[in-house]
């Protein structure tokens, strides 16, 4: 059973000048953790807004929980949880008041579905009298997730929940998502952080309104076409520039402590090292490396 089915969905802005979402199709199975991975302006938010029935598509169709996003919008709104990228709770209400408000709007009570939010809520409960506007980024994020969950949605839409959040809080957030998944809630999440992609069951890489590929993170990595090398020397900037100007370089870019590069067929470690020696860079560490999702994304953007 598919929880979300998207079929040739399109959205344009400015009388067709900007194709924000361009003929996008994908399906998400029940209980799946599905990631939309792409930078700002890729079209992620427009897709979320159409699937949560707050924006009408220009073309194509989509169904959530078997319901049509245009015809059945009222029923969909009862069944989905949506956490927009921008903090959208009531800043003048306390933690407790926000949560009660959202429960009441959905005709339920906090007690009824407390099991679902308990793990997350206990972390912010000591501050339940504090106004939402006065909370830290991490606490706002947890409260927003509680509010999106309080009516026990069958599909949860999370639009960039971890943007601007430090690595420790990001890790905690993804652990919360893992636990929610175990409760059989379908989760569609977007992120600009490529390292988070590996935590999803399947991912869609998206850029300029178009989907570049959809697969499991492991398959995306396995389908990387070239041999990828990691290189390092001091100073790094000189190495980066030298490799970039090497005629046999296919792709080259900084990657943390190392730089990553791939070369045309038949060019291996010896050839590259010889070239670098001619350029006056002798002490180079060079080794084969396994591509990450980020390498795959860069490769798809460049081709």
């Amino acid at each position: 059973m598919e929880a979300v089915v998207v079929n040739a969905l399109s959205k344009t802005y400015g009388q067709g000048a900007t194709r924000a979402v361009d003929n996008v199709s994908f399906a998400v199975s029940k209980g799946e953790l599905f990631g939309l991975i792409g930078p700002d302006g890729a079209g992620k938010t427009s897709i979320f807004r159409m699937l949560t029935t707050v924006l009408l598509p220009d073309g194509g169709s989509a169904a959530v929980d078997g319901l049509d996003i245009v015809k059945d919008y009222k029923e969909i709104r009862n069944r989905v949880g949506y956490m927009p990228g921008k903090f959208s709770l009531y800043p003048d209400l306390s933690i407790e008041e926000n949560l009660n408000f959202f429960a009441t709007v959905f005709n339920t009570t906090v007690e009824e579905n407390y099991d679902l939010i308990k793990d997350i809520y206990v972390q912010i409960e000591p501050f339940k009298k504090r106004r939402a506007g006065k909370l830290s980024g991490g606490m706002k994020q947890k409260l927003a997730l509680c509010c999106a969950l309080i009516h026990k949605p069958s599909v949860l839409f999370l639009d960039e929940p971890t943007t601007g959040v430090d690595p420790v809080s990001r890790k905690e957030f993804w652990e919360m998502l893992r636990r929610l998944k175990e409760q059989n809630i379908t989760i569609v999440v977007s992120t600009p952080y490529m390292d988070e992609a590996t935590l999803c069951d399947r991912i869609a890489l998206i850029q300029n309104g178009k989907i570049l590929s959809i697969d499991t993170p492991a398959n995306v990595v396995a389908s990387y076409p070239d041999t990828l090398y990691a290189l390092r020397s001091e100073p790094m900037f000189a190495l980066l520039q030298a490799v970039e100007h090497y005629p046999h370089t296919r792709n080259s870019y900084a990657f943390g402590e190392y730089m990553h590069a791939s070369f045309t067929d038949g060019v291996g470690e010896d050839e590259v090292k010889n070239y670098l020696r001619e350029q006056g860079i002798a002490a180079v560490e060079m080794k084969k490396t396994t591509p990450t999702i980020e390498d795959c994304f860069i490769n798809k953007l460049k081709n």
């Binding site: 930078p39 700002d40 490529m194 850029q207 870019y253 980020e294 994304f297 953007l301 460049k302």
Partner: peptide, 10 residues
């Protein structure tokens, strides 16, 4: 550099 694609970030 928040929010941009990996190529632009580099």
């Amino acid at each position: 550099t928040g929010g941009v694609d990996p190529v632009t970030r580099r």
